[in-house]
Every structure is written in C-alpha cells, then in structure tokens.
Amino acid sequence: MKKWTIAIAPVLLMAACTDEAENPGSDVANEQQGLQEVTMVLDWTPNTNHTGLYVAQQKGYFEEQGLDVEIILPGEAGANQLVASKQAEFGIGAQESLTEARVQDIPIVSIAALIQHNTSGFASPKDKGIESPSDYEGKTYGGWGAPVEKAVLGSIMEQDDADVENVDIVNIGNSDFFTAVERDIDFAWIYYGWTGIEAELRGDELNMQYLTDYSDKLDYYTPILMTNEDMIAEDPETVRAFTKAVSQGYEFAIDEPEQAADILIESVPDLDPELVKASQEWLSPKYQDDAPQFGEQQEQVWADYAAWMFDNGLLDEELDVEEAYTNEFLPEGEN
C-alpha cells in the first residue's frame, strides 16, 4: 500500500481483467440498459482513499447516472498518463503530481478533492527517538527517489535550524514501511490513515511529524479526482454525472463508515478487514472535514502549494492555477 503512503510514487501493475473479459456480454447488456461505459483508474492498490468509488459502484449510484464504471489499477505509466492519453476517462491523483503535470503541459484537471487536508507526514518507530525535524540529522530516510522529498525535508528541517544535507536519503522503492524501519531506515513519509492505523493495530508506537504542523503551504489536496481537458470540453455531462455519483459514494462513507468499510471489503476481498474498518473510522470524517461540501477545492490551496514548489526549484515555471482544478462539476450548484 506504499502509494497510499507516498502520493507520487511509481504505480503497480495494470489490472489483469476488465468487465468485458469477465463478462463478454457486458457491452450488449449496457447498450440495452443505455449505460455509458467509462474507466476509472486508481493511483495505487485499493484502500480507504477509494471507498467512495466502490460504494458508488455497489450502491448503484453510477448506474443511476447512466454510467457503467470499470475501476482498474494503473500501469507503470501511472494514472496521470492514462487519463491524459484518454485510456481512462477518470483517475485518482494528487495535487503535487498534477501540478507537475500541468507545468509540463499534460492536460489533466482536478475535479474534486477526496480528502480536504494533507494527512501525511514523516513517521518513525518511537524507539528511534525522532521527535522533531532536527532529529532527522544523522538518520536514514527511506523514500522513492523524487526531488520533492528532499525539498519537503529541507523545508521543515530549516524551521528547526537543522540541515537536510545531514540526512542519508535512500530509495527503498515499494518496500513495506514496517520491514524497512526494522532493517534499512529510520523514518519515512507515510499517510497516517493507512500506515499509521496499521501501526496502531500492530501495537507499534510511532512518532509522527505531520507536514501541516510546519507549513500551511504543505496542506494540499491528496488524493484528488481528475479527468482530462477533452472530457471537460467535449462531454461535460458525463463528467458531471460521474462526479455526482462519486460524491454520493463519499457522502455515504462519511455518514456510514462501518457500512462503507464492509462494501470495500466485499469489493476487494484481499484487503485486511480489521485494517479497513479501523482506517475507515479514522478517515471518514476527513473526506469533507471543514469544507462547505464534499470535494470542494480552494484556489488558495492550489496557489500556495504551487508557489512552494516553484520557490523550491521543483517547477520550471509557475502554475496557471485556474487551469489546474475546477469545482464546476460538484453536484451542489456552480462554484
């Protein structure tokens, strides 16, 4: 579940089967029912970031909107590329990777925030004694090899009068956090709602430095729901219908976390039921949090994080913020 831990890490294998492979008659059935087939690509293996999608599928919200939605895993190229190249109409991404993509003229657009505030941070087993960013000096950080990691580390360490050059940064790829901190590293970047909850269930005490405790500019949207510019221009009604069904799914997960967890477990039997239920209880209140409605995005959040990335040398040019996201397709009016 590393991708849920690290927002812009490389992605896993493409799902081996499609609805058509499982049911050769699905195209005919959908035509008879008048359903439009669309593909939704995840950012990583299924987890509680994605619960609302599976709720929308199982509760019939997609079908009510005239859609037959196939949920797939991303290939090596990643969700951004699949959505940009129209191999999938919709996908799950993150503000940081979409910002990078937009500056590189990749035509993807965020249409909803799935979680309102950044729940990620740097975690370590309590016995390693890492209680603040200054304690990173002399320690080994395990990441996935992206420039943003050193920039974030350096940004929060500066506030503690510490130097990121004194951190040994190593690439651990898709290694399991718990195995890695026992064997190779001292700390890593995780999302508490999955890896942190798993630590609680295992009885492992963690020290956690949340990014939002050190900078408002690092309180960005991750994950997000995205589509491509051509879908918005050529088929806005499908975008609106899809976003409405997804919103219904996440609103159900907000109101009924136990039932939502059961739906995810039923939909993805390989998941650990205990972890899903505990994670869902923790995460459900955070989908909408303090936003006026589920999915709503603020221009300031996009502008602040893009400015931070540009100031830290992570962008070649400044982001055109208005082109990167829209609230237009959220179900409660025009925002």
Rank of each mutant, 00 (worst) to 15 (best):
E70S: 13
T99Q: 09
T51G: 09
V38G: 14
F90K: 07
E64W: 02
Q65S: 08
I72N: 08
G75S: 12
M40D: 11
G34S: 11
E100D: 12
N80I: 12
V69P: 06
L98S: 12
G91D: 12
L73I: 07
L67S: 11
V38A: 13
S97F: 07
T99I: 15
T45E: 14
L42E: 03
K59N: 08
V38Q: 06
F62T: 07
A79D: 00
I71C: 08
Q87C: 03
M40E: 07
N49Q: 08
E100P: 00
S85I: 01
G93Y: 01
E89Q: 13
A84M: 05
P74Y: 00
P46L: 06
L53Y: 15
E89C: 04
Q95T: 00
A56R: 03
I72Y: 08
I92T: 08
M40V: 05
F62W: 07
S85D: 14
I72W: 04
K86G: 06
T45Y: 12
A94I: 03
A94Q: 10
A79F: 00
A94E: 14
G93I: 09
G52T: 09
G66R: 04
Q95A: 00
Y61T: 04
V38S: 12
M40G: 05
A56G: 07
S85W: 05
V41I: 15
K86Q: 15
T39M: 08
I72E: 07
D68T: 07
Q58I: 11
N47V: 03
G93L: 02
S85C: 02
A94L: 10
F90S: 12
